[in-house]
Write a protein that binds this DNA or RNA. Structure first.
Lengths: 156, 156
DNA sequence: AGTTATTCGTTCGATGATCGAAGGATTCCA
DNA sequence: TGGAATCCTTCGATCATCGAACGAATAACT
């Protein structure tokens, strides 16, 4: 049921495909940019999670939190942290409150790598957006927020 | 040089972050949906490349084309095709023109899997877009095309 | 307080995706 | 026709990830 309540608007369906193309293009870009620096997907995901945590005010994440954010097993997370620590992108600190926990923090070098990877892309996007007026940008932002919400909700 | 030609417009910078959030959310969703079906990223990428080829009229891709699309070594591609063939999602055919080539085609079961994975997401997106009028959808489409172009160009 | 249960991170052995090198088959070119 | 290039596969090795088990630290229960 509910298969074809009415004919699908082709323009809107195009947008669905465009979203998919954007995400796969971004995926390819990220993989490539990371590979050049010896970082694979999980490493990038971890750094991004740490960066997000930092931007939201938290000083660092525990290994467990990271494992959950990455949907990674505890043992895999240990290996990943060994890797990132060896590369100098992350430090392991002891949690004062709970001494079972290990607090993970990004180093400055990780931030520099991130900027080197994504800075040019962000700059190009900013320039591209000069072709949109403020009202249009607002529409785009509204769409992106709504689309992200939907994808996130499908996730559970 | 060229660090701050002028102050960055915060609204536009927000959009950059929103794009990133959308892509990472989509990535998580895809990984999860695939894992449930025993498909990992490379398998999904391969099926998507095949679907795209089919939608563009090409009957199938050669193993080499697939390897390039996935940035995968020839040997890894062989293994991947073994896997997909064993799962019944793909068939290997001989190319009539060049008998070195192996022509890869999606099976009907692969299409069914794809619909099961992405159909509900697409439906939710379509419904979400009813909150946008035609003119706004056109703006969004223009933005998505431009953003994808940029990401693709950064890729080289 | 003391004992038990839970949580956290790590280590260990195993699995599997991917890689590079080498090889057989086919096609291109001179 | 013969040599070079292309295509896919096989083989051995590497590395990320997993599950199970462990020691340390905390929480819960009595």
């Amino acid at each position: 049921m509910n298969a074809h309540p009415q004919a699908v608007d082709p323009r809107r369906y195009d947008v669905v495909r465009l979203v998919q193309e954007l995400t796969t293009a971004s995926l390819r870009f990220t993989d490539r940019a990371g590979a050049v620096r010896g970082l694979h997907r999980s490493d990038l995901n971890a750094l991004q999670a740490l960066a997000k945590a930092r931007d939201e005010g938290r000083s660092g994440l525990s290994a467990k939190q990271l494992a959950e954010a990455l949907t990674l097993s505890p043992s895999a997370t240990t290996t990943l942290l060994d890797r990132l620590e060896r590369a100098g992108h992350v430090t392991r600190g002891l949690d004062a409150d709970d001494r079972r926990r290990v607090t993970i923090s990004m180093t400055e070098s990780a931030g520099a790598e991130a900027r080197a990877m994504f800075g040019p892309l962000a700059a190009a996007m900013m320039e591209m957006m000069s072709g949109f007026d403020d009202e249009e940008i607002e529409v785009v932002a509204r769409f992106l927020r709504a689309a992200t919400d939907i994808v996130d909700q499908m996730e559970r």
